[in-house]
Structure formats: structure tokens, C-alpha cells
């Protein structure tokens, strides 16, 4: 009986980047997992939490907990959303013991996609092939809250035909930051400009990250700058063959 994995695709992937979710499912199935998509899922609540609307965030987070309560594994194409669930729910439900207990029981079963591959599935080589030059952007929450640094690079190293070129300051924020990107668009845009320059310096065709939200910011800026460089979620790279 293969293990069952529930996808939490996140609202951004659901709305804007469905291919990322499909790619993630494909890779997991290739590894022999049975993949479910609980249809009642929406969002983890992070946008409200990060903007200071705790009550609204709790509302949505409780919904999340009820949807995924019985999942064996929850796999997420985002370091940021994973960290929201596994770390910030603790803070969010400080005064709600029942939800807190639920969140604590669920947290160990919630995995960011690349960490799931390496630590649960125990694979580095998923049999992918992508003859291209890529560069990797370290998404802040994946990097600093979940300690994801070498993992995605190890996975990329096993992709046939792929050359990874590090960009300068790959750990510097792309400027997305959720509602920050629209409250302070001029600062956010200035940050992503530096990121775009760093990407261009590598001569890469693709920028890869484990967070679709960073890629939305980076692709939005690349397009605006008339750049031919494309963003890819790690799952999309690993699904290609």
C-alpha cells in the first residue's frame, strides 16, 4: 500500500500557476505516492497574518486545519506557506488551545516539496531531464525559517542536461513580501530590479525557486523589463524529462 500524499497547492498556485501543482503531482506519482487533492482547500491564512489581521487569519487557518486534519502527508510547493503552517500557527493560536493542539498534531506531517523529496522520499534523482542553464533563487522563508539551502541545489544537480549557475546574492529577498509588494510597490520594485540584474549576470535561461510567490514577483519584473528569462518552480524542473 503506497503512502498517500495530500497536495496543498496554495492559493497562488491554484489561481495563477496550476502547472506547478500538476508538476508536483507528477513527480510524486512517479515516486509511487498516491496523490490526493482535497478540494475544500483554499489558503493557509498567511496574507492576513502578515498584514496584522490575526482574527481573519485564524478563521482561514482553522479551515485549513479541518481540511487536512487526517492527511498522512501534506506537501506544499512553497516554503513560505509551509512555514506559516508549521511555525506561525503556533503564534496564531497562542490563545486557542484546541486549534493549537490540532496545529501541533498536523505540523510534523506538513512538508515543503523539496524537503519532502529529500527527507521523506529519500531521493535526489527523480529522473528529470532539462537541457538548460538555470540559476536558483533562495526564497527567504524557505531559507531562513526552514533552513532550505542545499536541498534544492542537490535535486537540481541530478537533473540531466541542467547546468546550475549561482547568481550573486542569491539569498537577497526578491521584494515580494505579500502585501508589502502592493503597499510599498516602489521599494518592492527596486528590490526585484537588483534580483533581475543578478539573474541576467548568470546568463541563465531559467530562474528556479521553491516558492511560486517569489516567482510571480520575479517573472512579473522580468516581463516588464522585456527579458526572455523564464521562471520555473522546482517541481516543474523535476517533472520535465
Amino acid at each position: 500500500m503506497p503512502a498517500r500524499v495530500a497536495l496543498f497547492v496554495t492559493c497562488i498556485v491554484d489561481q495563477f500557476f496550476p502547472r506547478v501543482g500538476l508538476a508536483m503531482a507528477e513527480v510524486l506519482e512517479r515516486l509511487g505516492y498516491r496523490v490526493d487533492f482535497p478540494e475544500a482547500q483554499t489558503c493557509c491564512g498567511q496574507p492576513a497574518f502578515n498584514t496584522g489581521y490575526r482574527e481573519e487569519a485564524r478563521h482561514v487557518a482553522r479551515h485549513f486545519l479541518s481540511v487536512f486534519r487526517d492527511a498522512e502527508y501534506v506537501v506544499v510547493p512553497s516554503g513560505s506557506c509551509t512555514s506559516m503552517i508549521t511555525r506561525h500557527y503556533e503564534e496564531l493560536f497562542r490563545k486557542d488551545p484546541e486549534a493549537l493542539e490540532q496545529a501541533r498534531r498536523l505540523a510534523p506531517r506538513v512538508w515543503e516539496f523539496s524537503q519532502f523529496l529529500l527527507e521523506v522520499a529519500g531521493v535526489e534523482d527523480v529522473g528529470a531531464r532539462l537541457p538548460a542553464v538555470v540559476t536558483y533563487h533562495d526564497s527567504c522563508h524557505a531559507l531562513r525559517e526552514l533552513g532550505i539551502r542545499e536541498g534544492p541545489r542537490r535535486l537540481l544537480a541530478k537533473v540531466r542536461g541542467l547546468e546550475l549557475r549561482e547568481m550573486p546574492a542569491s539569498q537577497e529577498c526578491c521584494g515580494f513580501g505579500g502585501t508589502f509588494s502592493v503597499k510599498f510597490p516602489e521599494i518592492s520594485a527596486s528590490m526585484v530590479r537588483t534580483k533581475v540584474e543578478a539573474i541576467h549576470q548568470t546568463g541563465a535561461q531559467y530562474v528556479v525557486s521553491v516558492d511560486a510567490s517569489c516567482l510571480m514577483q520575479i517573472q512579473g519584473a522580468l516581463n516588464r523589463a522585456g527579458s526572455p528569462v523564464r521562471t520555473l518552480h522546482l517541481a516543474e524542473v523535476l517533472a520535465s524529462r
Binding site: Q15, F16, F17, P18, G21, F37, P185, V192, Q219
Partner: peptide, 23 residues
């Protein structure tokens, strides 16, 4: 509002068919 703030500096992904529809 926020959409304009985004579009002043960046392109915006167009909502198309959602993941759940494709799934």
C-alpha cells in the same frame, strides 16, 4: 488599488483555469 500598485512596476499573471479545474 493593489492591482494598480502591482501593475505600475510589474506584469501580473492572468488568472486562467485554476489548478482544481485542471486536476
Amino acid at each position: 488599488g493593489p492591482l494598480r500598485a502591482w501593475l505600475d512596476y510589474r506584469d501580473l499573471p492572468a488568472p486562467g483555469r485554476s489548478f482544481r479545474a485542471l486536476w
